[in-house]
Design a protein around this nucleic acid. Structure first.
Lengths: 336, 336
DNA sequence: CTGAAAGCGCTAACAC
DNA sequence: GTGTTAGCGCTTTCAG
């Protein structure tokens, strides 16, 4: 079972290695009879070309590298599944790497580009400084960013339609008659967080609702930060706002927990629609994560296989509100 | 920035490629002065060896392949993180593949073994027929199974201590005074499911509690199956059992949902301790998933780098009960 | 300690 | 259509 090679096949078939290679690569420059003969032998010997040798000879690994922030989350596994959907279908393999801390992230990024172990790089939710993004342009390897705008030679991105989702969320709460709608925002260096906050502001304005600074709670996309934000508020104010728009589900869970511990309740809507959201009945903005993964890989492949100078357009995945109980609706599925 | 090679370095350094290679590989057979000179040049030229070329020459890819069932789940991302912990530390890369359907799984498995794209294979939660496992032995590539017993030449596994966790779960419920404790079992072809069920039976016996056949509900480790099991029961019986041991969290969620929809409630404990369990306050058996990932990779590396004929012992990750509200305890954290 | 040379297994000009 | 011949970039005997 150990290592039958192309050369071996060619010898036994009485043809040159070039011919076998041609057969392998479906070159039209092979006589049907020859092809048949070679193919038979290949099957008979159970020969399979060595990916490693191919990679060296073709300077193509048929591999995509995916960079993750170092945290486990169901979110990422969804995205990953989406990536695999199209990668496997197109004959590509997925290599993954987690960044261990923010400085490691930079090194990892550079290393992936230089090693050429992968034909393209998909960067998820990391936020490399702009300088780094520019540095990428110097390399051959195309890069696709998820959750971060970026554009350039061999660079594109897939982003979330943060605006539509946020606007829908606020509209929904407003339709309930809530007027003092607080927002639990994300870290200021996150593009998603920025966009969601901006959309919240605009939506509030459009509904003629006031946005005082005390209604804007700073969070960090973590459960703890949501918990802490509510605690801070409760320490300073007696009355809760009418409702809460949490810029992601994790923070909504934290906020919910903090409220619950004091027997309080607050209509709220989240963002992401992670698995737990469904279980907890959290009304939230659905983000099609699988789709993000799929598109990211499609963009990457477009760069790899596309005509050298053809640009690859960015993509924006749609969002939509999923109404559950947490927003003050009486029952699951009630649409306002 | 494009492609400076070892040869280039050797030319500029005025030494042979062999010497540069020796320096790269920390061979002691290099004169300190030579080494210094070469190293300086390497740094200066920003040279980095090509992993692809190395792989071909050394017949080692420094890559581990991980096979997943085709479903996204927070569970897997935890395991993956654990794998990455040790893989990255030891200079290995992770390549992942999802099986799309059970037949694809077999093909994928074989392909991974034959392609030698990875130095070892970690198989998670798939259940390849025994014949396939034996087939693996024919290949050079070591295989580590997670959640499935297996042993042989270049084969080992990491499993869950299903017994301890299950016994603790039942004991806990029994300590509450519950006597009719039902079990929501997993699919019969799952080793974990078998062991958890067996442990339940034994624990019940030891507590002098009856296990009538009606107390054993068949499930499939899915939320839906948990939901369905409760529905079946409610259709046939008027009174609920005293408590429920669900052989995994997902089924517990399904069961909970079905009960909740009729305004019912049932003390229950699950198994896995997934993220949602914490949010829902589900008492459950904790499985250290990250640890499983770490150990799996350690075993794989042991096979790869270990002495050729040294066996690699299997591993069993410990489990422990995490008490939350769902088991009828008054408050979070109350230990019985 | 160092170098020459033969691969690793496949691809791709280039000639016939 | 097919074979010849260089590589791809690195490792590794084998001499010296």
């Amino acid at each position: 079972m150990a290592g039958i090679t192309l050369q071996e096949v060619s010898r036994r078939a009485g043809v040159s290695t070039a011919t076998v290679s041609r057969v392998l690569n479906n070159s039209p420059l092979v006589h049907p009879d020859t092809r048949r003969r070679v193919l038979r032998l290949i099957k008979q010997l159970n020969y399979h070309p060595s990916p490693t040798a191919r990679a060296l000879a073709r300077a193509r690994t048929q591999t995509l590298a995916v960079l993750f922030p170092g945290i486990a989350s169901g979110f990422y596994s969804e995205v990953l599944c989406g990536m695999d959907d199209v990668a496997s279908e197109r004959g590509y393999h997925l290599m993954i790497a987690f960044s261990h801390g923010p400085q490691d992230q930079e090194e990892l990024f550079i290393r992936c580009l230089r090693e050429r172990r992968a034909d393209a790089l998909v960067v998820l939710n990391l936020n490399p400084p702009d300088a780094l993004v520019r540095a990428a342009t110097a390399h051959e390897t195309p890069v696709v960013f998820i959750d971060r705008p970026a554009r350039g030679r061999r660079i594109s991105c897939v982003q979330i339609d943060n605006e539509t989702g946020s606007v829908e969320a606020v509209r929904h709460l407003a339709a309930h008659g809530y007027r003092r709608i607080a927002v639990l925002s994300g870290p200021t260096d996150s593009f998603d967080a920025q966009q969601r906050l901006a959309a919240y502001r605009q939506a509030m304005r459009e509904h003629g609702l006031p946005v005082t600074s005390e209604l804007v709670w700073q969070g960090a996309f973590t459960e703890e930060s949501g918990y802490a934000a509510v605690q801070r508020w409760l320490k300073r104010n007696r009355s809760l706002p009418d409702a809460l728009f949490a810029c992601n589900d994790a923070m909504a869970f934290g906020a919910r927990q903090a409220l619950q511990e004091r027997g309080l309740n607050l209509p709220m809507v989240g963002f992401d629609d992670c698995e737990t959201a469904r279980h907890l009945g959290l009304t939230t903005v659905h983000v099609p994560m699988r789709q993000m993964g799929r598109w990211a890989v499609e963009l990457a492949l477009a760069w790899i296989e596309g005509a050298p100078n053809e640009g690859v357009p960015d993509r924006v995945v749609p969002t939509r509100l999923v109404v559950r109980e947490s927003c003050g609706c009486a029952r699951k599925g009630v649409k306002v």
